[in-house]
Write a protein that binds this DNA or RNA. Structure first.
Lengths: 129, 129
DNA sequence: TCCTTGTTGATAATGATTATCATTTACAAG
DNA sequence: CTTGTAAATGATAATCATTATCAACAAGGA
């Protein structure tokens, strides 16, 4: 028997409605005004669950905090090493035959792939001067 | 004035002498027998410093622990989502013109790129059955 | 209604990493 | 050699994101 609580739905909607690749804290802060009784633990719990169910994905840990993404299609990202801003990079898709060759080279049973670029975002470049 | 302490050198050598992409704890455990007075804090400090100096690189956080690599040349990795085992995947180099197109698309001043595959390593595949 | 099971909020616990601080070390100048 | 200075160290406390705990609650199904 599956249940999909209102909180879980709202957390999912929150992720779907942003392209900032937010942290758990960010989601919590965003929902708190409209969900006064929401607990941070509930956000963590539901993010973990949504991730396990494949409805959201994790973009890894940036500056100590895990970043989530409602967009589960394979796409590349650029991360600012200064402020942590993370943006999508369109147009980079890992071709299936590349996965095959990696499978062969490593023996791993692959389930995902990620391409990530690091650097300074435009705002942080300005601050450098 | 630069100083390159014996500890720092040994930590660097330790990373250069393995392909396991180890954690700070792993390096500490590896060095402790031959460096009885070594402190875990010293390992963390030197890893951070070596990373800032570009002598080693970080492969990101896997299962809550940062993974380091003495190999600074750009290469892809495969990570086991079960046990965290991380292996090199030879033959994947990000071409410079790809960096240029990402630079243009995002406005980021890029400094690095990483390609990472996730899945189950051979050992963990066996355990599944 | 009763029972089972998922969910929640509050909060304590965990654990990797970082900060602190007094002490020691390396090296250069006198 | 002695002294000054800045880096390095070991021990340990502090930080902080994430997890675990637990009692209370809610949603169905029988």
């Amino acid at each position: 028997m599956r249940r999909f609580s209102q909180n879980r739905q709202d957390i999912l909607d929150c992720l779907a409605g942003t392209d900032t690749h937010p942290t758990a804290e960010w989601v919590y802060a965003r929902l708190k005004p409209t969900h006064p009784s929401l607990s941070l633990a509930t956000v963590y719990r539901n993010l973990t669950q949504l991730k396990n169910d494949g409805l959201i994905s994790s973009m890894g840990v940036v500056q100590g905090q895990e970043r989530f993404d409602g967009n589960c299609t394979s796409h590349a990202h650029a991360v600012c090493v200064q402020c942590g801003r993370m943006v999508d990079v369109p147009g980079f898709i890992i071709p299936p035959d590349m996965l095959d060759s990696v499978r062969e080279a490593t023996g791993y049973k692959l389930s995902g792939a990620g391409l990530q670029f690091t650097g300074l975002c435009e705002e942080c470049q300005k601050k450098e001067s």
